[in-house]
């Protein structure tokens, strides 16, 4: 394995490409092919997206906020070479909601909200409450990992340049 600090900066594009790929997958509905077939899961883009363009002379950031935000500006940024740097996701599993923001650079999760759980009333309730919450966090991590695993397999495979990248570019062209 490469030195950690070298790998962090050298491969920071992987996380941003992942989020860009994920946006494409969600927009086209292709994400359902990746998740457990038996699970009742739907994924949508949340209320925030940040794009970063390092292809321009200065680094540009484009932030799109709002529940019903038009993502067209984001698509236009993609045409100019930007990638998704932060992406909010809303996931429903059996109609139970998870919301969080993924950062491309670190894959850190912020503003992670799980379905509501009861507050522990006594000290004895704490262990049960923690285990319940941990289980809910694991659901969000598991779904994210399933996406990331598929992305990495595709990204290092031969199909990336031959098929997947072309499909994403076609999607960008038709939605700008």
């Amino acid at each position: 394995m490469l030195d950690i600090s070298v790998a962090y900066s050298r491969f920071r594009f992987i996380g941003q490409e992942f989020l860009t790929w994920l946006w494409y997958l969600i927009a086209t509905g292709e994400y359902t092919d990746i998740l457990d077939k038996d699970a009742n899961i739907s994924v949508s883009i949340g209320d925030r997206m940040v794009l970063e363009n390092r292809h321009s002379e200065d680094i540009e950031f484009i932030t799109i906020k709002g529940n019903r935000a038009d993502l067209k500006e984001g698509v236009v940024a993609l045409t100019k070479g930007a990638l998704v740097a932060e992406l909010s996701l809303e996931i429903l599993v059996d109609d139970q909601p998870w919301k969080f923001t993924l950062k491309g650079e670190s894959l850190g999760m912020t503003n992670l909200k799980t379905p509501a759980t009861g507050r522990p009333e006594t000290a004895d309730d704490i262990e049960g409450a923690v285990l319940e919450k941990v289980h809910l966090y694991e659901t969000a991590f598991h779904i994210t990992e399933q996406f990331y695993h598929t992305f990495i397999k595709q990204r290092i495979g031969d199909d990336w340049d031959n098929q997947i990248k072309k499909k994403i570019k076609t999607w960008i062209k038709t939605h700008q």
């Binding site: 950690i4 491969f11 992942f18 670190s106 894959l107 990992e145 990331y148 990495i152």
Partner: peptide, 24 residues
């Protein structure tokens, strides 16, 4: 676990695939 390390430690990747990761 950032993008590179998360990919590196994922199960089901061969040494060849890990080399591919280093060359992206």
């Amino acid at each position: 676990l950032f993008p590179y390390t998360q990919a590196y430690y994922m199960e089901g990747f061969s040494d060849r695939e890990k080399d591919g990761l280093n060359n992206l």
